[in-house]
Amino acid sequence: MPENKRSLLVQFVAFNFIGLMNTAVDYIVFQALIWAGVHYIVAQVISYAAGTVNSFVMNRAVTFKHASRQAGRTRAQAARFAVLNAGVMLCSIFLLYVFVDLGGLPYWLSKLLVTAVTVVLNFTGSKRWVFREERAQVPR
């Protein structure tokens, strides 16, 4: 397997391993809030936010560490990470609404379907935007 494809595969596996931890927190918090009678949209916002900080720290340190070594990049990456996750969260809320209210699917199944979509969106956004490698500027 060519090095760039191998590297991408390793990153995707690491991203998903870390994502499993975040997803477990997200799903457990979501189900606990639903059980407690919290509206599923509010539960989604709270549960999604529960895994976000850990996701940033772990992915920055492990998955995209080569792109995170440059000094002074943490704030910019954190800002991009927040924007990406806000967008993905809005997408997840919309999809939950479609699956639950329009499609009539149960909350647990809807949450699993939405998670499958958001994993791909989050990895792509993290790789290509949040933790992208900065190309060295060539003086003109």
Rank of each mutant, 00 (worst) to 15 (best):
A136P: 05
F56V: 08
A136K: 12
A14M: 14
R135A: 13
V13M: 11
K5G: 07
A76H: 09
S47A: 15
V62K: 01
R80W: 02
R128G: 14
R73M: 12
G104A: 09
R135M: 12
A67K: 01
V120E: 03
T118I: 12
V119R: 00
G103D: 10
W129Y: 08
Y97E: 08
H66Y: 03
T52H: 00
G19P: 09
R69M: 13
G125V: 12
G104V: 09
A14W: 02
L96A: 00
D101H: 04
V88T: 14
S7Y: 01
G51L: 07
I41R: 07
M89G: 03
L95A: 11
N85F: 05
N59L: 07
L20F: 09
V13I: 15
V119S: 03
T23L: 12
R132S: 15
I34M: 14
F15Q: 03
I46Y: 01
S47P: 11
L84V: 12
N16H: 01
L20H: 00
V120T: 10
I18M: 04
V88N: 10
A86H: 00
G72D: 08
D101I: 02
H66N: 14
L96H: 06
G87N: 10
R132V: 15
K5I: 15
V45S: 07
L8S: 07
Y40A: 03
L90G: 15
M58Q: 10
A67M: 09
A32T: 11
T118W: 01
S110K: 05
Q70T: 12
V53K: 01
M1R: 06
L112Y: 01
V88G: 03
G72K: 06
F12N: 04
V83F: 07
R128C: 14
R140G: 12
A82I: 12
T124W: 05
A32W: 06
R73W: 01
A82C: 11
V98C: 10
G72N: 09
D101V: 07
M58K: 00
G104T: 10
L8K: 02
L109F: 11
T63Y: 03
F94V: 15
F123N: 06
W129E: 06
L102E: 11
L96R: 01
K65I: 12
E133R: 11
T74Y: 05
R60T: 10
H39A: 13
T63W: 02
A116G: 15
S68A: 13
K5D: 11
Q70C: 03
A14T: 05
N16R: 01
F81A: 08
R132L: 12
A86E: 04
V130L: 08
S55G: 15
S47Y: 03
R75K: 10
F81Y: 14
G19V: 08
D101Y: 00
A49S: 14
L112H: 00
L102Q: 13
P106H: 08
R6S: 13
S126Y: 01
R140T: 14
R69E: 15
I18P: 09
N122G: 13
K127S: 13
